[in-house]
Amino acid sequence: MSDKVKFKIDGKECEADQGLNLVEAAKQNGIYIPTLCHLEGVKAAGSCRICNVKINGRFMTACTTPVSDGMEVENSTEDIKELRKIIVETLFVSGNHYCPACEKSGSCELQALGYRFTMLVPRFPYAFEPKEVDAKSTKLYIDRNRCVLCKRCVRSIKTKDGKSIFAVKGRGHNAMINIDHELAAQMTDEEATAAMDTCPVGSILKKERGYFTPIGRRKYDKKPIGSDIEESVTI
C-alpha cells in the first residue's frame, strides 16, 4: 500500500516510502545524514540542527522533513559540512566535555561527530559554566555538564503506564533535564541501561557501569559514526 517516491541526494537517484522522514529515507539508500537529537521511531524534535540539508535550495532539518517526490537534496557540500561542524563545536564549548574522564567516551555520538568532522579544536572560546550533577537516584545519575538538551530522554523514556521519567525544567539558557527519582527507582537494570544508551552523550549514566567496554572495542573507536549506513548499500 505504501507509495514509493523518487528523490535525489547530492545527485544520486534514491527511492523510499512516501512520508518517511528524510533521515530514514536517506538511510534506506545507504546515505548517512548526521543526526544527534533524532531517534528512530520517536517523534522528531528538530532541536539540534545537525541534520541540516538543503532541500530545493533551502536549509531544512532532515529529521523533521517527510520525503516527497522529486525532492533535490544537498547533503555533503562543503558549506553544509562546515555548518554541521560549527554546531558540533558550539556544543563542545557550551557544555563541559572532559572526554578523557567521561564514561561515554568512545561510544558518544557528539564525540563521534567531532571525529567524523575532524574537529581538532573548537573555534569558539570555552564557556566553562558549571552545571549540576544529580546522583540521588539509585540506578542512574545525570551529569548535566554533558547534556546537549536533545530531549531524547524526555521523548522516549517512559514508565509502563506512559509517565515520563525525565523532564525539562526552565527555559532557554536555564533549561535543564530533571529526573523523577521515584519513578527512576522503579526501573529495572535493563531499563536503566537502555536509558543510558538512549542518551547520545555521557549525561545519563547507569551507576556502576562506567568504563565497561575496553578502549579499542567501543562503538566509534575504529569506524566513523554513519559508516554502518554507508556500508549497508553497495552500488
Binding site: F92, N96, Y98, P100, Y126, P130
Partner: peptide, 19 residues
C-alpha cells in the same frame, strides 16, 4: 603546536574551573 587535551581545552586540570 598544542599537544593533547590539556593544551587544547584545559583537560583534567580544568575540571577545577567549575569549583
Amino acid at each position: 603546536v598544542s599537544l593533547g587535551e590539556c593544551a587544547i581545552m584545559g583537560g583534567l586540570p580544568a575540571m577545577r574551573n567549575n569549583i
